[in-house]
């Protein structure tokens, strides 16, 4: 039997949703004023973004989603009040090779360490493997992003590449890691089981 009853976008405490052009930009603009968040998410120079600029980025993103068909983007929302808490995406998909890159961010410090990221990542993996039918997924993480590395290892990702001294920040150079997870490894680890509650 096909397991299509399983809701791909519903987690225990969170859900995936589309961008809300009315409300989200104001919240995301706030996140961008937290330099820690920006430096964990991006290797481009961190900078705070105005609400207007975030809105412009949403427009650009939706245009890309429509034209390129090689990325999928979700906002992460708290089930209790539907408030925006983060974002998750699969990007740079090479369809012929069945490979894509995952990204995930929980915007506010107070929402981190509560298991939201774990739930969202489990849903994102299920989407990548069971809906997009990718053969493998990758994630690129700087060595200083300890939380992301712990999350990837929890889901069975293998550190495949260490790009030595690829980033310059705070007056020193940092390694950049590439992690990978194959569909087989995901299936046998049961990490994709949505019912498996875990903090």
């Amino acid at each position: 039997m096909f397991d299509i009853q399983t809701q791909l976008f519903e987690g225990e405490h969170i859900r995936f949703g589309p961008i809300d052009h009315e409300k989200d930009a104001e919240i995301e603009s706030k996140w961008t004023h937290d330099s820690d968040f920006m430096r964990m998410m991006e290797i481009a120079p961190a900078r705070p973004l105005s609400v207007a600029l975030v809105k412009k980025q949403y427009e650009k993103l939706e245009k890309e989603l429509d034209e390129n068909k090689n990325q999928f983007y979700f906002t992460i929302r708290a089930r209790e009040d539907d408030r925006l808490i983060g974002k998750a995406s699969v990007q740079w998909i090479e369809w012929a090779n069945g490979n894509g890159f995952l990204r995930l961010g929980i915007g506010e410090a107070e929402n981190r360490g509560k298991g939201y990221g774990t739930q969202a990542f489990r849903m994102l993996l299920r989407f990548a493997f069971a809906e997009l039918n990718l053969f493998r997924v990758s994630a690129i993480v700087p060595e200083y992003n300890v939380a992301a590395i712990a999350l990837l290892k929890k889901f069975g990702f293998v550190q495949e590449v260490c790009r030595r001294k690829s980033l310059e920040r705070d007056g020193r150079r940092w390694d950049l890691y590439v992690f990978g997870l194959l569909r087989d490894e995901w299936q046998y680890s049961h990490a994709g089981d949505l019912q498996q509650a875990e903090a």
């Binding site: 069945g98 493998r136 293998v158 550190q159 495949e160 260490c162 790009r163 030595r164 590439v178 990978g180």
Partner: peptide, 26 residues
């Protein structure tokens, strides 16, 4: 160049999966 790792089976050619090698030189 120094071989810094390989992303496993990320390319499919002629029905076979192969790795991509990543190299760097400082």
């Amino acid at each position: 160049f120094v071989l810094e790792g390989r992303t496993r089976k990320d390319v499919l050619r002629e029905g076979k999966r192969t790795d991509t090698f990543w190299m760097g030189i400082l």
